[in-house]
Design a binder for these strands. Sequence first.
DNA 1: CGTATTTGCGGTAGCGCAAATACGGTGCTCTACT
Length: 481
Amino acid sequence: MANLEQLLEQHFGYSTFRPGQKEVIEAIIEKRDVVALLPTGMGKSLCYQLPGYVFNRPVLIISPLLSLMQDQVEQLKRFGEKRVIALNSFLQMSEKRNVLQHLGQYRFIFTSPEMLKNSQVQAAFRQAQFALVVVDEAHCISQWGFDFRPDYLKITDWMDAVNRPPILALSATATEAVVKDIKAYLHMSQPFEYIHSVDRVNLHYDVVQLEKPIEKAPWILAHVLKTHGPGIVYTQSRKKTAIYTERLLSNGIRAAAYHAGMEAEDRQFIQQQFLAGQLEWICATNAFGMGVHKDNVRQIIHDHIPSTVANYMQEVGRAGRDGQDALSILLYVQKDEDMTKFIITEDIPQERHVEQYLEYTGREENPAVMLDMHQISETGFRVLSYWMQRLAPQEVQQKLVDIRLSKVSQVDEMKTMVTAQKCIREQLLHYFGQSLNEKPNQCCHYCGIEYGVILKEREHLETLGYMPSWGERLSVLLPNI
DNA sequence: CGTATTTGCGGTAGCGCAAATACGGTGCTCTACT
């Protein structure tokens, strides 16, 4: 077997491994299942890219986003790899057929969990004998599988019959409960686990309690005007991304909105501008962030309570990847959590949906009638179908109740972290089943922090000379909200 | 569930208020229609 350091140098031009990479790669080469939790920006993808050059069978990577697949394909191509393809809905029928017929000629194949449903894909994959299957951003199994993208729970369904390839689950942030879900749904037994510390000493966590929701926008504007970015404002609705953006723009701050209702092209453009430093602030929903590799983000502002501590961790974790100080601020008004709870439970199917589903199946009608009659959302219907196909109706009722309770209690955990009057860093680590080694000087709201120590003050001339054109301001307000 | 916007009401019209209504996140794929 080739020396790993040689392969690293030869294919990627690095001379040494980062922490964790070598252990993970060795376990993969020994054909073990692996769960690897590595910090973002610490070369997670190398953990499957390098083994791709050790094996002579293809590596399959399951990725949550089309844009992420695209990025990774491009990255590999930049390293000179040509035998790489993204198998997704961007391909024409004929291209797809062609790729499936010649799977063996690729070294890296990227695809989505939904693609695995396709029977042609399944047939081709059974033939392919992958050397390794990678589940990238594996926390999605737990975060999205139960109530949003059930195909995340079915990844191993098509594999068990055949000679199941080893699986590598990759993530930056997963709690013990999430790791448990990952292992269960990927049918892993005795995987090798590499888990890094989630503590980020250069991140400083502030909480700002306000009296009324209406105070949030002026607070954010005033704060942005006296500090500096780059930064991300996370908000709860698409509409608010536009409102905040307009406020910042009209005060001379280069900002843009970002949410899932925008055209893919616009989203990509805005992300690129942010990466290139042409935008200082992004006002976004939780659609923004996955796959955004910008190392000098200095601030994250939440205008609301995120739906889970894990989401909070991921979102604040997008700051300070360069190791320099970064500030995270969460604005809180009493009862903010009610809105969060409403949003995350709204789509979960209700008791009556289970009854309706049965009714339509009983009459030998397709239960999808429910969709036509607008009695359930598309997401809700897919989730309901998943559980109805696997559990008895009574169990489905119970499952839906459990999902609801679990979602609500996760919001409560987040609220507790914000309001418990205890060190936020310690609470975060505790949530991930870890403990604190050393508390940094500037720690969190409850230990005491000063913005002036963490951030430099804004130099007024630097940005106030900039005024956006009407076109730019309109384009913020008008995109299909 | 809470907030922001629209509608409804009184009553020589216009406008101020209260009540009613609308709205709220994350992504894949396929298919039929424009």
